[in-house]
Every structure is written in structure tokens, then in C-alpha cells.
Simulated assay, not measured.
Amino acid sequence: MDTHQLAPPNNPEIFENMICDLFNKIESTNTYKKFGGHGNLQKGIDVFSVEKDTAIQCKKKDLSRRESTLKNELLNDIKKDVSSVISKNLAIRITKLYIMSTYKDHPDVDEFCEDLKEQLNTGFEIIYWGWNTVQSKILNHKSLLEKYYPNFIINVKSDEEILIRDLDLKKQIKKNFSSWLDYAPENRKLSSKMLLRDFQGTQYPDSNEPDQFNEYSWFAAEIHQLYHRGMEFVIGIYGICPLPDGKWRLEKHSDPDKDSVKVRKIGQINFSDIISYDIDGDEYYNYPHIFCRFSYRGIPFENCYYVNYEKVYEQYELKDQII
């Protein structure tokens, strides 16, 4: 699907409606709605969901201008909107602020959002989706294509077909990976190591250079378990330091003077992002290869969290607490 190109909407209001519909589809809800409208005091946001504690700001850009002008204007817009959210007493609680733009994905914008969060101590995530990401999400939903691109012809599976495909894949995985999934990690006779590969990657096996997000198109991880939407993998071991107020922070470096706890970082891959797998591997790595869409800023994981043997540490708790 990445070979197809959708034209960004020319109308800002249509762009906002599209983003509202898109998030309702992605998060299987109907709680996203527009926050006021033109002429109303929007306080830095265009779309929001009280249920999801999420706000969205939409930036429709005139793409006929120079790229440097577009990028600088977008960065200024983001800073202005974030400051507005903070200063104008937004009545709804948010943990995530998405910036959606018809301008392309760009690592400079991602880094700017992360730096801005730290500088302003926002208390919420600032996440940028350029048009590359937006259109890739829209292409996964036939109903959105029919509504906003009625003349765009593409063989897109219906939501029902996608559900049936994912259920069938889950059954196959439970059967073919039973040697791992039916046992606790410490009781498995086979190594838990598996190779996660970008199904569109071209580097394997000769090279493995990082992409624009400093991520790799193939790497090893240990299978953990299934969850309701897909497969889980252990992708790292870290130390965390519990804090007196019940929160915690991730330690970048081991420190024997701190009462640290070792935790596993778990990445979750949605069944819809798993294209195929080879249970036998190949002559280079003779353990299972799993071919995925690396759709989340260069990685295949729709979500990550941290666990030890006694407690689950949610991913959102990590933010703003790294030493």
C-alpha cells in the first residue's frame, strides 16, 4: 500500500473531519469529535476524545511553497499551539497531543516535539504525524477511502475481512508457535530468540544501517506471549528506580548505589502488522523470522510497556521520568 499516493485535502475543515474519522477508526471508538470550529476559541486543539485523554491539532499546509519555509512555519505553529494548550486552561485532561499535518514526515519535527515537551514540562506527549503517516493509516480503511477519495480505486479489504484474516493468523500462530507459547520462558526447550524483519526491507542479510529514526529494519527479540491484538516480544532489559510518590524512572546507566529493579521492555506487534513468518528461519539465522510492517517510526511495535515478575510498568509512566 505504501506505493499508492493520496493527495492531501485542500480544505482545512475537510482535513479536520478526516482526522477525526481516522482516529475513531484506529482506536475503535466514536468519542473523537471536533473541538469547536472556526470563530470559536479552540485553545490550540481541533479534535479531542475525553475517553482517550487525547487532543489533536490539524495543520493543513500550502505545499507549493519552499520546504524550508514549510518546516519552519510548522515548528512555529507547534510551539504556539502547545503554549496555547498550556496557558488557556483547557478544561479537558490530555495525556497526548497529536500534531497532524499535510506536510511530510520529518525527523526534525519529531525531535522538536520531544524537546518542546521537555522545555515546557507539558505533562503530555507531543506526537507528530506528517502526511506520509496519515495517508498510510487512511489506506488501511476502505470506508475512509470511499468517503474522502471516492475516485481512488484500490483493492482494500473491508474491516470484516481484516478481522477474519487476523483471527485466522492468531489460530495459525498459536499452533505453529506452541513450542514457545505453551511454556513459561524458563521452561522452554527451544531458544526464545526470533528475528523481526521489515517485510519491505532491502538490507537483509548483507547490511543493517539505521533509518531516519535511528531504527533498524531487522533485529532479534525474544517471544514473550500473545495479547488480544497480536504478539509480544522482549526487546530489552533495563533498570528502574522506584520513587517515594509511587512513580518510577528509567535508569540510563546502572548505578549500584540505587535500589534499582530489573525490568523487561515488551513490544507489542498487532496481527494486522504481521505479514508472514518462516518458522524455520534460513541459512543465516536458523530461528523463526517474522515479517512485519515497521509502521511506527521505524519499528513494528504499536505499544511498549515494562514488566518484572511482580508489577506491570505502563509505557506512559516512563515519559518525563527518564534520568
Rank of each mutant, 00 (worst) to 15 (best):
P210S: 04
S254Q: 04
S158P: 02
C241W: 05
R229M: 09
Y227M: 06
L196C: 00
R229L: 08
Q212P: 02
P244N: 12
I240V: 10
S179Y: 15
I164N: 10
Q200A: 10
A221V: 01
Q225A: 03
I269Y: 04
K189P: 00
M231K: 08
S217T: 01
E161D: 14
R188K: 10
K193W: 06
K193S: 08
R229H: 12
I173D: 12
V261H: 11
R264F: 06
L169E: 08
W248T: 05
F271V: 05
K170C: 10
R165Q: 14
S254R: 00
K262S: 14
K262R: 07
D245P: 04
F199T: 04
I240W: 01
A221N: 01
Q172A: 13
E161A: 12
L243S: 14
G239M: 04
I269F: 02
K170H: 13
D255K: 13
G236N: 03
P242V: 08
K171C: 12
G267N: 00
R249I: 00
K258D: 07
L226Q: 02
K171R: 15
N270M: 07
M194F: 02
I266W: 07
R249S: 10
Q200L: 10
N270D: 14
S178G: 07
W218L: 09
M231C: 05
Q212T: 13
A221H: 01
G246F: 07
S217Y: 05
T202L: 13
D166G: 12
L196Y: 05
S260P: 02
A221F: 02
I162D: 11
I235F: 04
Q212G: 04
N208Q: 03
W218D: 05
K174R: 15
T202M: 14
L243K: 14
E251G: 09
K171E: 11
I162G: 14
S158C: 09
I275M: 12
I237K: 13
S158T: 15
P210K: 07
R197Y: 06
S179H: 13
P256S: 10
K170F: 11
G230S: 08
Q268W: 05
R249V: 00
E160C: 09
K258F: 05
W180Y: 15
F233S: 03
E209R: 14
S158E: 12
K265M: 12
K193L: 11
K189Q: 09
N214E: 02
F177P: 09
S207G: 00
D259I: 02
S191L: 06
S254A: 12
V263D: 10
Y183T: 01
Q225H: 13
D182F: 15
I266T: 02
D257L: 15
Q225Y: 09
K189M: 05
D168K: 11
